[in-house]
Write a protein that binds this DNA or RNA. Structure first.
Lengths: 131, 131
DNA sequence: GTAGAATCTAGAGCCGACTCTAGGTCAAAC
DNA sequence: GTTTGACCTAGAGTCGGCTCTAGATTCTAC
C-alpha cells in the first residue's frame, strides 16, 4: 500500500503531527518510520495499525514508558513472549481495576442524578442519603 | 464524631496531607475546614464524606476545575439543581464513553494475550491476525 | 521544660504528556 | 521565479495535578 505522509496519518489517527513526531522520538513506533525525498516521513499501513494499538493503550491509561517498553520487546523479535505477556497481563489488571472504579463512580453519579431529579420534581421524590 | 486532624484524614482517605491542603486551596471542600487551636484544621465526618465524593470523581477523570465548579454549586445552596444535574449528566456521559473505550482496549489485550499464550504453547495454537 | 512529631503558610519544584516556536528545506501552483 | 503550504529538527513552553521545602508554631510524651 503506497505510503502516507505525516499529515495523512494525523488525519486518520486523530493525533496531531506534533504528537506523531513526539511519539516517534519517544520510541513508540515498532520500526523507525521510512523516509522519502527530503527526509519526509512515509508511514506504512503497518505503522498506522501499530499507532492504533498505541492509541488504545494510551486511552486505557498505559503510560508512554510502558508502551515504549512493550514496543521494544516487539521490536526485539521473537523470544521474549513471556515478557510481552507480563506487560499485557499487568495492564489488563489495571484496566479491570479502572473499570471497577468507573462503575463505582457511575453508581454514585446515578444516585445523585436521581436525587436531584427528585428534588426538581421530575420524578417521584427521592430522599438523599448522603454521601 | 469529634473532629479529625489532617493526618487522620490523610490516613482515612489515602490522600497525603499535602494533597488535602492543596485540595482545600483549590476550593474542593464544600465548606472551609473548621480550625482548632493554633489554626490547625479540624475535619468533620461530613468533610471526609465529601472528600470521598471528590476522590471518586477524580478517579473517574473529572478535572479539578469541574469538581470545584460542582462544589461551588453545592456551596451556593438550593436553587441551582439544574446546573448540578447538568454537571453530573455530562460527567456520566464521559464515564460511559471511558468505559466503552476501556472495553475496547480490554478486547485488544485479551486477544493479544491469547495470541502470545498460543505461541508459547500454553494453549492451543492461535494465529495472530494483526493488529 | 525539653525533645520530637505534627501542624501551619507561602511558594517552589516536578512529572507526564503533549504543544508550540524558530528557522530551514522542498515541491507544486501560479 | 516566487509564493504557498507541507514537511523537517531541536528545543522551549504549557498544563494539570500533585509534591516538596523552608521556616515558624504547637502539641505530646517524657
Amino acid at each position: 500500500m503506497s505510503g502516507l505522509s505525516i499529515g495523512q496519518v494525523a488525519e486518520r489517527t486523530g493525533l496531531s503531527v506534533h504528537t506523531l513526531r513526539f511519539y516517534e522520538r519517544e520510541g513508540l513506533l515498532a520500526k523507525p518510520v521510512r523516509r522519502g525525498t527530503a527526509g519526509h516521513r512515509v508511514y506504512s499501513e503497518g505503522d498506522v495499525d501499530w499507532l492504533g494499538v498505541c492509541i488504545r493503550l494510551r486511552a486505557s491509561g498505559m503510560p508512554l514508558t510502558d508502551i515504549r517498553r512493550y514496543t521494544e520487546l516487539v521490536r526485539a523479535g521473537q523470544g521474549n513472549e513471556v515478557e510481552r505477556l507480563q506487560v499485557l497481563r499487568e495492564h489488563r489488571e489495571r484496566v479491570l481495576a479502572q473499570m471497577h472504579e468507573l462503575n463505582e463512580c457511575l453508581k454514585l453519579i446515578t444516585h445523585k442524578v436521581a436525587v436531584y431529579e427528585g428534588r426538581l420534581g421530575l420524578r417521584d421524590n427521592v430522599t438523599d442519603c448522603a454521601p
